Simulated assay, not measured.
Amino acid sequence: MPRFFIDSPPVDGKAVVTGEDAHHMLKVLRMKAGESLILCDGQGHDYSCTFMQANGDTAECQVQEVLPSQGEPNVRVTLYMGLPKGDKMDFIVQKAVELGAVEIVPFLAERSVSRPDAKTLRKKCERWRKIAREAAMQCGRGCVPVVGEPLTQKQAAEQAATCDAPLFLYEDEREVGIRQALRGKQPRSVALMIGPEGGFAPAEAETAKQAGMQSVSLGPRILRCETAPLAALSVVMYETGNL
Score class of each variant (00 low, 15 high):
Lys27Glu: 13
Cys61Asp: 12
Glu173Ile: 05
Gly219Asn: 10
Gln180Met: 10
Gln64Leu: 15
Ser215Leu: 05
Ala156Asn: 00
Phe91Lys: 09
Gly199Glu: 05
Ser8Arg: 15
Lys185Leu: 14
Glu126Tyr: 03
Pro106Trp: 00
Leu169Pro: 01
Ser234Cys: 12
Thr50Met: 10
Gln214His: 11
Glu239Val: 03
Gln62Pro: 01
Leu29Gln: 06
Leu37Tyr: 02
Ile131Met: 07
Tyr80Ala: 09
Thr58Asp: 13
Tyr80Met: 08
Ala191Thr: 13
Pro9His: 09
Gln155Cys: 09
Thr50Glu: 15
Thr50His: 07
Val93Met: 04
Gln70Thr: 15
Lys14Cys: 13
Lys209Met: 06
Arg179Pro: 06
Gly44Asn: 02
Thr240Ala: 01
Tyr238Ser: 12
Ile194Trp: 04
Val28Ala: 08
Val147Leu: 04
Ala118Cys: 00
Gln153Asp: 14
Asp7Pro: 01
Ser114Asp: 08
Arg122Asn: 14
Val28Cys: 03
Ser48Met: 08
Ala161Met: 09
Met31Asp: 08
Lys27Phe: 05
Thr227Arg: 01
Pro202Phe: 08
Val63Pro: 01
Cys40Asp: 03
Met25Cys: 12
Leu39Lys: 00
Asp12Glu: 11
Arg76Ser: 14
Ala96Leu: 08
Ile222Asn: 13
Asn242Ile: 06
Leu218Pro: 03
Val97Met: 02
Tyr238Leu: 14
Leu218Val: 01
Arg179Ile: 12
Arg174Ala: 12
Cys139Trp: 04
Cys225Trp: 01
Ala96Trp: 02
Asn74Asp: 15
Leu218Cys: 02
Arg188Thr: 10
Glu239Leu: 09
Glu158Asn: 13
Ala54Leu: 04
Gln43Pro: 00
Ile178Ala: 00
Pro202Asn: 10
Met52Asn: 13
Val102Met: 07
Thr58Arg: 14
Lys95His: 11
Cys139Gly: 03
Met52Ala: 14
Tyr47Trp: 04
Asn74Glu: 12
Val236Ile: 05
Gly142Cys: 01
Ala156Gly: 00
Ala136Val: 07
Ser189Glu: 15
Ala33Gln: 14
Val17Thr: 03
Leu26Asp: 06
Val216Asn: 02
Gly71Phe: 04
Lys119Leu: 09
Glu149Arg: 06
Ser215Arg: 11
Val176Trp: 03
Ile131Cys: 03
His45Tyr: 05
Lys119Gly: 01
Gly19Phe: 05
Ile92Asn: 01
Pro84Gln: 05
Gly100Ser: 11
Arg224Tyr: 10
Glu20Ser: 11
Leu121Thr: 04
Glu149Asp: 09
Pro202Glu: 09
Glu204Leu: 11
Arg179Tyr: 12
Lys95Arg: 13
Pro202Ile: 10
Met52Ser: 15
Met31Val: 11
Ile222Met: 13
Thr227Glu: 07
Val66Arg: 15
Gln214Pro: 03
Ala54Phe: 07
Cys163Asp: 14
Leu151Tyr: 06
Gly199Cys: 04
Met1Ile: 07
Pro106His: 02
Ala203Gln: 14
Val146Gln: 11
Pro145Asp: 04
Leu37Val: 05
Thr207Trp: 06
Glu110Trp: 01
Cys40Lys: 04
Arg122Gly: 10
Phe51Tyr: 12
Gln180Arg: 13
Ala161Arg: 04
Arg122Pro: 00
Ala109Gln: 03
Gly148His: 01
Pro166Phe: 03
Pro196Gln: 05
Cys143Phe: 14
Ser234Glu: 01
Lys95Gln: 10
Ala181Glu: 02
